[in-house]
C-alpha cells in the first residue's frame, strides 16, 4: 500500500505545532499501525531527521501507554482497540491518514504525539485505593462477594488509563475514567468502607485539575478501547450525592 501520513509535529510544550506530510510506500496490511510508524522513524533517522515521538510499550493493548488521534478517532477508526492493536489491514492503498496527539487542556502536549497524562495519577492518588496495610488482610474467602457484583467490578476495573475518554470528550471530561475506579470499589464490600471519602476526594481533584463537566454525550463510551460503560458515570453521580 502507498499511504500519505499527516502527522502532528510539535517540538516542545511551548512550540507551535503543525502537520507534516510523509509518504509511505510498501506498507504491508499485516503490519500494526505502530510498526508502520517504526518504519517511518527508521527512515527519518537514516535521513538524519527528527523521528516522531510517541508513547508505547506493551504493544498488546493493556498498558495504556499508546494513544493518538487517527483520522478523527482516539486509537483510530476501529472500535474497542488501542492504537497498538490497530492493524494496517483496515486501511487501503492511497489513503491519507491524519495522526494527532490527545487534545485536552489537562493533557498538555510534551512533544509530537506524547502528552502529559499525570493528571490521571493525581486523581488516583487523591483516593483511588482501599486503605489496608500489608499483612492486615483477612482470609480471602472470609469476604463473600456475589459473582455478579464481582464480575461487574471487574468490568469497571479493566480501564487502562489511556485517556481516550478525555480526548474524545468535547468538554475534556474525565468522568468515565473516574467513574470506572469509583464503580469498581463501590461494588465491592471492601471498598464500601471509604466510599464517601473516596468519591469526594477524587471528584474534587478531577475538578481542580481542569477536566470539564459531563454532558452525557457518550463520546467517551463510544471511543473507549476497553468498552467501559456509561452506567459507571451514573453510579459515580449516585455515589457522589450519597457522600454528602
Amino acid at each position: 500500500m502507498k499511504l500519505t501520513l499527516k502527522i502532528w509535529r510539535q517540538k516542545n510544550p511551548k512550540a507551535k505545532g503543525n502537520f507534516e506530510t510523509y509518504i509511505m510506500d510498501n506498507v504491508s496490511p499485516k503490519m500494526a499501525f505502530l510498526e508502520m510508524l517504526d518504519a517511518l522513524n527508521k527512515r527519518l533517522v537514516e535521513e538524519h531527521k527528527d523521528p516522531v515521538a510517541f508513547d508505547h510499550d506493551c504493544r498488546e493493548g493493556i498498558c495504556g501507554s499508546c494513544g493518538m488521534y487517527i483520522n478523527g478517532h482516539p486509537h483510530g477508526p476501529v472500535p474497542a482497540i488501542t492504537t497498538c492493536s490497530l492493524s494496517m489491514r483496515y486501511f487501503k492503498d492511497g489513503d491519507t491518514i491524519w495522526v494527532e496527539p490527545w487534545r485536552a487542556k489537562p493533557f498538555p502536549v510534551i512533544k509530537d504525539l506524547i502528552v502529559d497524562r499525570s493528571a490521571f495519577d493525581k486523581i488516583q492518588i487523591a483516593g483511588g485505593f482501599i486503605s489496608v496495610n500489608t499483612g492486615a488482610a483477612p482470609e480471602a474467602n472470609s469476604i463473600l462477594i456475589q459473582k455478579k457484583k464481582s464480575d461487574d467490578a471487574f468490568d469497571s476495573a479493566i480501564c487502562i488509563g489511556c485517556g481516550a475518554c478525555v480526548a474524545a470528550c468535547k468538554n475534556a471530561s474525565a468522568m468515565l475514567f473516574v467513574s470506572a475506579k469509583i464503580s469498581q470499589f463501590a461494588l465491592l464490600p471492601q471498598g464500601r468502607v471509604e466510599a464517601r471519602e473516596r468519591v469526594r476526594a477524587m471528584v474534587e481533584k478531577m475538578d481542580e485539575l481542569g477536566f470539564g463537566n459531563c454532558s452525557n454525550t457518550g463520546a467517551c463510551e463510544a471511543e473507549c478501547p476497553k468498552e467501559i460503560k456509561l452506567v459507571n458515570i451514573a453510579r459515580l453521580n449516585r455515589e457522589y450525592y450519597k457522600a454528602f
Partner: peptide, 10 residues
Amino acid sequence: IDHYTALGVP
C-alpha cells in the same frame, strides 16, 4: 491472595 483481595482486586 488475601492482600490483593482486601485491596479490591476482582
